[in-house]
Design a protein around this nucleic acid. Structure first.
Lengths: 194, 194
DNA sequence: ATTTACAGCACTAATGATTACAGGTCTTTA
DNA sequence: TAAAGACCTGTAATCATTAGTGCTGTAAAT
């Protein structure tokens, strides 16, 4: 109980409530806004999350593989260490994942001439194409709907998203104590290696 | 390749709504807007993606586990089959994952009384708490920044995100042929279990 | 200028855990 | 009886870590 009674007092968090268009701004007070923003954000994330999952299946790419390939695409030419840092994995893990990707000819490596310790990862044409063609099914519908909006609204959404992206970029996620797992499972529940 | 052309035509249509500071106005005409929206969207996704990654580590939850727990939280009381459908995994996989989660007392199962073939998954209090407390480190910074904005801007962002969420909710992701993997790896490249 | 010591970067090897799937089994429902 | 739903094998692949190796770059010492 109680886990379901959560504050869906607004914006029906229950995905399939089929709002369609309703969208009450609810400009009550500022305190309430951020919660709704987070809810909306979660919905957006979830949609793309599921999309990624499906993509993985169809393309034969696993989550980390996809994540790493996207990182390479976004950052251009990056060293293995930088990738590991960006995706929060160890160098060794990234290396083995890149091995598989390189074996499938989706990425290739080039040893740097300036600093021969470094290795730069690139997407092959096939890899870039895979990544480029993949998001299409999601994009196409999205674009169609997006372009049917008034221009002022497009501009508004764009500004809003950039704003949010900037906010999230800025904060230092790394330094977070986060949770104490121990409190949850002091029982025989799980493992006690750490 | 080169799917990332910029297609900068010209003729900035103005539309200057520059709210506060940074955020280069980038004179966006309607044609160019959606690309930037997608870019911004990707940045948002990426940020939360990394956050989830970190969260997984700290909380001892793997990606699929987290995804499934979120699904349960969002949909309330769901059958195993529904979960499998939502997250695009087989029933068997969901079953094993739920086994582990149940063993840690983060979820529990209840056999339906109406249709005794079905089993409903729920979050335990501990599981819900884990999920609820988890996003905090991200939220705190985010909330702080968000609440420092003008109210009109908060409302704007909220409306924009809801708009986007609705758009993505609507489209049917499932029916997507997507890619032909075979074209990428005709070589000895990978596996040929099929 | 050469040599030496130390740090940085990527790779390898070995290991444990998780994921994902294809079978088969059991119970319930129609 | 047949179908649906969930569960239980066993197997293959991937993920993720630690420890160790080799090569490169930099700086100090000779």
């Amino acid at each position: 109980m109680a886990s379901r009674e959560r504050a869906h007092s607004v914006t029906g968090a229950g995905a399939e409530s089929s709002p369609g268009r309703a969208l009450a701004p609810d400009r009550s007070n500022a305190v309430n806004n951020y919660e709704q923003v987070l809810v909306a954000l979660r919905r957006v994330i979830r949609a793309t999350d599921l999309h990624s999952k499906r993509l993985s299946k169809h393309a034969g790419l696993t989550g980390p593989q996809l994540l790493i390939m996207r990182t390479i695409r976004d950052l251009g030419e990056v060293t293995i260490g930088t990738i590991a840092d960006k995706v929060s994995l160890s160098q060794a893990t990234v290396t083995t994942i890149l091995d598989r990707l390189e074996h499938r000819k989706l990425v290739y490596r080039v040893r740097s001439t300036k600093d021969k310790r470094k290795v730069h990862a690139h997407l092959t044409e096939a890899g870039a194409e895979l990544l480029a063609r993949a998001p299409n099914p999601l994009q196409e519908d999205f674009i169609k709907k997006f372009q049917s909006l008034d221009e002022w609204e497009q501009t508004m959404i764009l500004a809003a998203l950039q704003r949010v992206a900037n906010m999230m970029d800025a904060d230092d996620i790394d330094a977070s104590p986060v949770l104490t797992v121990g409190s949850v499972l002091n029982d025989d529940g799980w493992k006690e290696k750490g």
